[in-house]
Every structure is written in C-alpha cells, then in structure tokens.
Design a protein around this nucleic acid. Structure first.
Length: 561
DNA sequence: TGTCAGACTTGATGTCATACGC
DNA sequence: GCGTATGACATCAAGTCTGACA
C-alpha cells in the first residue's frame, strides 16, 4: 500500500477475502449432483362445478376445464384494471382455444358468452371450507405436505447434503407479468410434464421419472449449477431448479461478488480518473461509454440491455432515450462545476425512476451533445451497448462489469450511512445507545438509504400499514405527553426520552417503508461483512439484523462471530 | 462483429406463520 | 383465546452477462 494512502478495507474483510479466493478456484468444475428430481404439482381434479357458455352448461374435456379453472381462480383473486383485463382476456382466450378439442373450439367462439361464475363460486366455497377446517386436520395436511416435500428438498453435492431452492416444477397458471404494456399478460402457462424436463445429475445416480413418464433428457453437466430445467412456454427462456442460497456453491458465488466489489473499492480512484479523462475523448463512442459509466457509478443505474421487440418499454443506462433526460436550471446554492439533470424513465419491473441529479459540467455538456439532432425516441447513447461498456470496464479492472458498481455503491453508501447514523444515535446519546431497538433502527435507516439509492420502490403495500402508522402516532403522542410531565434530569425522564426517541424514529421508518422495500438491497447488495463488523463494534446479536435464512445465506461472512 | 441462447442474479409481490394487541 | 398486522420466506418475472456460432 503506498505511503499515506488510506486503508479502505477492515482487517476482518481482508482475512475473509483471502479465504474466499482459495475456495472459489477449488470449487469450479467439481460439482456432482445426486438428487430425486423435481416435485410435480398435484394433478388437476375436477372441482365439481360447470363452465357455462351462452347460458348452457358445457361438459369440457379435463384439460380444457383445468384451464377454465385457472381463469376462474384469477377472477376469484384480486382484480386488475380494465385496460389490463381486456388484454388479459384476449390472450387467455386465444391460448385456451388452442388447447381445446376441435369440437369445443368450434362451439366456444366468443369470450363474451363465457360464464365462469359457477367455477368461481365453487372455488370460493372450497377456499372457505379450507379456512373452516379444524386445527387438527389442518395440522395433519400440513405434515403430509411437509413429508412429501422432504423427499425433494435436499440434494447431495460432492457428498455434501444441501437444500434445493425451488424443488417444485412451476404449476400451471395465468402469466401475470409486470408493467402496463406487457404483451403476454393472461397467457396460459400450461402444465409442465416430465417429458419437458432435462435432469442434470451425477453419472452414477439414476433419477426416476414419475410412473408412465420419461424425462426429456438426462445430462451430466458439471459446469452448471442447475439440477433440472425446462423451457418456459411463454418466453421460450429456460427455467431452472437450483440450489438454495444457503448451499456452499451459492455461498461461494455470493462471497465472490462482494470480493469483486471490494476490489473495485480499492481501484475506484484509478477507474474514475480514466473515465473522467475519456469523457473528453474526441472519439464519440468512447465519450458515450465514459458518460454512461459515470451515470452507472454515480447513481448506481442498471446497465440497460437492449430488449427484444414487443417487450415492455423499460430501460437502464445504455438504453436511455432522449425523452428520458432533461436539463435543469441552475439552483441558487449549486456548486460551480455541477449541473442539474432530470432522469425520468421506467426501470426494471416498470418501476418509475424520476430523480433530479447533479452531474459534472463535462457530463452535462456530453449529454447535451448526445441529444442534439436526435428525435425524442432516439437512443441517448446510440454508439454503444452494455457489451461495449463491459468490455471497457474489463480493461480497467478484471471482472469489472456495470453490475459491480451497483454492489460497490450500495455497500459503500451503506457503510457511510451506518457510520453517520451510529454517530448521531448511538455515540451522542449514551442512553439510547443502551437500547438494542435503537441499534436496529440505525441499521434499518442505513438500509433504507441504500434502497432509495437503488430505487427499490414498492407500489403496493398491504392495507394494514396505514393503521399501524396511526397506532404508532398515538403511542408517540402518549410518550411525548409523559415526557413533558416528568422533571428533567431525573432517571425516569431519561428513560422516557429514549422511549420517545425510539418511537419517533420507528414512526419515521414506518412512513418511509411504505414506499421502499429493504429486502432486496439487504439480500443482494449490501456487503454482509459491514454488518458483521458493525454488530461486533456495537455489541448487537446478529440475529437482531439477519433472519435465519439470511444468516445461512451469509454464512461465509459470519466466520468471525 | 453481431446475434442469440443459456445461465445465473435481482426484485416485486404473493402467501404463510407468528407475534401482538385486545 | 382470537383476530389481525407484520415479517419471513417462496415464487416467478425480469434483469445482467457470457460464450457459441454464423
């Protein structure tokens, strides 16, 4: 390390880093799976109600009726807006007719004449009966399900028992998709049969297909992580049965990801110097690449791959269009060398990204150049794509891709916020620092800041949240009243103040969590070694911040505990 | 060099179990 | 003890990225 250069990773992180490197190299190409194969959803059993067409009850073939019941199940659940419903009905009806017998197809020709109400009522009746089942019977059913699942949920990997993540083949259903312009919404996901499935296993292990069935194929590919796969009917993409996040292989992959992000932390000065230099390059492809990397680094944007024709209109950095960026007037207190821009687009899962951001003068000038003489729907970065950006990044640092910046920025920002909030809530206020609830709040607040940076918005929240906030407000009011009634500097006053502060922070968190979800950033972006070190420093049991599954997922980071 | 399929990760949301308040 | 709110986990859609192939 050059003299005077600040140490950027902790000693415990460094220790973990060297162990991780060894393990990752050792693991590759050695994996052998010995498993039972996937579990199949229960076969369709007629529900004892009829589909009605044009006022006349119709006896349908079991395969046709099964699909009608899928639609009835959709109707008995939460309803969608009318606009989506029309597309959904149209797609459903097209797919349903494809699966009908020739006679049914010639008779059932108009969706408007289809009446699913008897099926819906029956499904609701079944659901009600299920709710009314005595506790003992429910327990028995649960145990039966558990026993059946137990056979499928483990796999032997290199002689070690591991858990399988999704051991059941996806059941038939309606494709619900996301985004208003989703073209496939309502399409029928037909039942997947053993004949659709490729099994990947150890050469020595025979995986039996269900009676009277055969697998599509049995392979012994040691270089991939999946146990079984089939082709998704709607997208044509493969679907996989994979190992659980607690498995050694997933653990290794996870630790490797954060290792690369930590390496970027060490190299970031050099990486930034290079792309800042390239912002001014005379070669427009290079200046576009550098500008895109600047946005990815500064604002943790996703790379933004090109999407196939007809897919939902969502974008990331490289696929931004002219219409997604606008230039803001200078603010009063704005620094000289910074300019304001607004990014407004739909990101992954059609989640809106609308933020006013400050960028360097060079970046703003470049962006102004890139939008010149282009139509609203023209690509902002028309000379580059994610492949080019990643090739550029790989030249700056091995294994560096656009995705690594998101992990790096999330972890770095979490660390900064954790320090800031710890200073404010735990070091300044010694009384609050004794309370583990305040420590959990500090962790959640730092987590929330990351969720906001990564734009992990939630558009729908359970109805209950509003009442919970009202209850919390009441509690806070009561705590404030009590505090006022006590003499200052007394022990009781100190306790009441801590209680009030905690309630106030909890309320603030609850309000913000209506719009943001912490789970994704906690599970995928924030380096768990930061949390481990912080828990040790402030004497917090790890169980207070990580659930059982999360502790299993981050086992590799918990070695020091 | 561009395209595409395949493999894997990320992420919103649905569902279930449990904690909590009445 | 019961009903409900909440958190944990499961599900599966939608991304990223790599490598094969024309």
């Amino acid at each position: 390390m050059p003299k005077g250069k600040k140490r950027t990773i902790s000693a415990s992180q460094e220790r973990r880093t060297s162990t991780q490197r060894k393990k990752v190299c050792k693991l590759r190409w050695r994996t052998q799976f010995s498993h039972k194969g996937p579990r199949f959803p229960s076969p369709y059993r007629p529900i004892g109600a009829q589909f009605v067409y044009n006022g006349i009850p119709k006896k349908l073939a079991p395969e046709t009726e099964e699909v009608a019941v899928l639609y009835a199940r959709y109707l008995s659940g939460k309803r969608k807006t009318k606009r989506i419903e029309e597309k959904l009905q149209q797609n459903f009806f097209n797919d349903w007719r494809e699966l009908m017998t020739a006679r049914e197809r010639s008779e059932i020709t108009d969706f408007k004449l289809c009446d699913f109400s008897q099926l819906v009522s029956k499904l609701e009746e079944i659901a009600e009966a299920k709710k009314r089942l005595p506790k003992e019977e429910r327990e028995i059913l649960k145990k039966e399900r558990q026993l059946a699942a137990d056979q499928y949920k483990t796999v032997r990997v290199d002689s070690k028992q591991e858990l399988v993540n999704n051991y059941t083949v996806e059941p038939p259903g309606l494709y619900m998709g996301r985004g208003k312009d989703n073209a496939n919404i309502g399409r029928v996901k037909r039942r997947i049969q053993p004949e659709d499935i490729i099994i990947n296993t150890d050469e020595k292990t025979k995986v039996e297909a269900p009676p009277n069935h055969n697998w599509k194929a049995v392979i012994h590919n040691r270089s991939v992580m999946w146990l079984a796969s089939w082709k998704d009917v709607i997208s044509g993409n493969p679907k996989y049965i994979q190992l659980h996040s607690s498995s050694s292989i997933k653990n290794e992959r996870d630790s490797q990801k954060f290792l690369t992000a930590r390496q970027l932390k060490q190299e970031i000065g050099r990486v930034r110097a290079q792309y800042e230099k390239d912002l001014k390059s005379g070669d427009e492809a290079i200046s576009q690449t550098a500008t895109a990397v600047y946005l990815i680094d500064k604002f943790a944007l996703r790379a933004g791959n090109e999407k196939p024709e007809g897919a939902t209109d969502t974008v990331g950095c490289c696929s931004l269009r002219v219409e997604h960026v606008s230039f803001l007037n200078r603010g009063k207190d704005q620094k000289k060398d910074l300019e304001g821009i607004r990014l407004n687009f739909l990101g992954k899962d059609s989640i809106p990204y609308r933020k006013d951001l400050l960028v360097s003068r060079a970046v703003c000038d470049n962006l102004k150049d890139f939008v010149k003489e282009k139509k609203k729907n023209g690509f902002l970065f028309d000379m580059i794509d994610t492949k080019r950006v990643n090739e550029y990044l790989a030249r700056l640092m091995p294994d560096l891709t656009a995705k690594v910046f998101r992990t790096f920025r999330a972890s770095q920002f979490f660390h900064e916020k954790l320090e800031e909030y710890s200073r404010f809530h735990l070091r300044k206020d010694k009384d609050a620092a004794q309370d583990v609830r305040m420590k959990v709040i500090v962790h959640k607040k730092a987590n929330l800041a990351v969720a906001q940076l990564l734009n992990h918005q939630t558009l729908s929240k359970p109805i209950g949240k509003g009442t919970a906030i009202k209850k919390q407000e009441k509690k806070l009011k009561a705590a404030e009243d009590k505090l006022e009634s006590l003499t200052t500097r007394s022990d009781k006053h100190k306790q009441a103040k801590v209680k009030r502060d905690i309630l106030k922070e909890e309320l603030d968190l609850k309000q913000q969590l209506r719009n943001y979800a912490l789970g994704t950033s906690k599970a995928n972006y924030i380096d768990p070694t930061l949390t481990v070190d912080w828990c040790q420093k402030y004497d917090i049991p790890i169980e207070k911040v990580y659930s059982k599954t999360q502790r299993e997922k981050f086992r590799w980071a918990l070695v020091d505990l």
